[in-house]
Design a protein around this nucleic acid. Structure first.
Length: 404
RNA sequence: GGGGAGAUACCAAAGCGGCCAACUGGGGCAGACUGUAAAUCUGUUGUCGUAAGACUUCGCAGGUUCGAAUCCUGCUCUCCCCA
């Protein structure tokens, strides 16, 4: 295949990118690749510890996809070996190491999900266990001699933990070296990572240089801010939008982001064309309400298709804006003529964690039957043949209860 | 190797023999409001029970006591200082 002009490639590559270190080397590599008609090796290491991918992960995976579309070679490294060490990056705690079995399982789920974003046909998959597992103690010691302790504790998260009197296990220091060794092994041209990975990516550069290789270019993507608008998107903060999430949830969550994030999301997690971005930016400022609906629609469409996206929009309008019962409310059944406690019905639906919580919600006016608030926590219902009612529990749990 | 400090509910952090299911903040949940599942304000926040109440929870295992998150013993883990 023939490559696009370097300028055009660069434009795509720089979409949403925070930093390219160093940019001129990237330009050189692109020129050379075009001239020799040889794709660049784009490396992305992933940790198979958290199998549920969300939009935060998608930022980097999408960048990887863009490189694929430009004709370069995407190499996904499953950190099988490194996961068994436990990556400390961005954590304030030591991560528990995983077993071989868990790694395999997680890696598979990861890949299955990543294939929603990457082009599986053009993807090279590797596992760093294959080469890191081969190293003997001497090799490891030689590797450690290439970085000083002072340099190591420069790293943001290490220095924070160090100053907060939190534990840092020695093996965690080996993580950046292991990751860097991956680059040496693969002779990667570019490594992708979040801004929190900068240190690790730079170690890769250094090790490649020492090995006499042309060092990789480090490309940092921003950490996507989560739906809470303040912290990075993460499962543990519960501010994430999962890529496997149900369309309705996905849509609603997308709408809950603060207005000032609308544009960023367009740029980083949707595929709207580059030349439409400026118009979106303007819309996000002038008409945030509609821009956000466009965004939610675009996101759901990306993972579930157009139909589902429209359905999610409708669902949202019904339940949240008009506060009506959605078309797709699940059904529950009670026995005909049997006096049944509402408490038990709700327990059946799974809308509440415990009877205590249900009682609390009733007390606070969070439960209604046919749009009428239930005030008595011992409320009972008796349905005759063919009778039914709509049940609302909390903000967004709807159900239809029928006699059986 | 020696000395010291600490481990409390989802997180942070009070409590230091009964009034503790445990102050407070964050988070969560609910209500009001809103273009929104945002922001704000208010309420609420172990499980079971109609209720009275019962049960489980304060690192783990035992013990003292009428009674322990609080006292004692052992264990595990973490941090600091010295070597």
């Amino acid at each position: 295949m023939s490559f696009l002009p370097v300028e055009e490639q660069l434009e795509v590559i720089k979409r949403g990118t925070v930093e390219i270190v160093p940019e001129d080397e990237l330009v050189e590599k692109l020129k050379k690749s075009k001239k020799e008609n040889k794709p660049l090796k784009i490396k992305l290491g992933v940790d198979p510890t958290r199998p549920d991918l969300h939009l935060g992960h998608s930022v980097i995976l999408r960048k990887m996809r863009q490189f694929q579309d430009l004709g370069h070679e995407a190499i996904l490294i499953i950190g099988g070996f490194t996961a068994m060490i436990g990556d400390p990056t961005g954590q304030n705690k030591t991560r528990p190491p995983l077993s071989m079995e868990e790694v395999k399982e997680n890696a598979q789920t990861y890949i299955d999900q990543a294939k929603n974003i990457l082009d599986p046909e053009k993807l090279t998959l590797t596992n760093n266990y294959d080469w890191l597992g081969e190293m003997d103690f001497m090799d490891v010691i030689k590797l450690t001699s290439k970085l000083t302790v002072a340099r190591m504790i420069e790293r943001d998260d290490f220095s924070k933990r160090f100053h907060n009197n939190e534990s840092i296990s020695l093996h965690e220091f080996l993580y950046p070296l292991a990751q860097g060794q991956d680059s040496v092994h693969l002779k990667s041209d570019v490594e992708l990572g979040g801004t929190d990975q900068k240190f690790n990516l730079l170690v890769g550069r250094q090790l490649q240089k020492e090995d006499g290789q042309d060092p990789q270019v480090c490309l940092m993507m921003p950490l996507l801010v989560g739906t809470d608008g303040s912290r990075k998107m993460s499962k543990s903060y519960d501010n994430y939008i999962g890529i496997n999430e149900e369309p309705n949830n996905m849509y609603g969550k997308a709408l809950s982001i603060p207005d000032n994030l609308i544009y960023e999301y367009f740029e980083l997690v949707t595929d709207i064309p580059l030349d439409e971005l400026p118009a979106m930016k303007e819309k996000a400022e002038k008409d945030p309400r509609n821009a956000k609906h466009d965004l939610a629609l675009a996101i759901v469409k990306l993972y579930h298709g157009e139909e589902a996206a429209k359905g999610a929009k409708k669902h949202f309008e019904q339940t949240v804006i008009k506060k009506e019962i959605p078309d797709d409310a699940p059904e529950f059944f009670v026995d005909v003529g049997e006096e049944t406690r509402l408490l038990d019905i709700i327990a059946e639906t799974g809308f509440s964690q415990s009877n205590g919580q249900t009682k609390r919600m009733i007390k606070q006016g969070g439960v209604s039957i046919n749009d009428k608030k239930v005030t008595n926590k011992n409320h009972t219902v008796t349905l005759s043949e063919g009778e039914e009612f709509t049940l609302k529990v909390g903000k967004r749990n709807f159900g239809i209860v029928k006699a059986r």
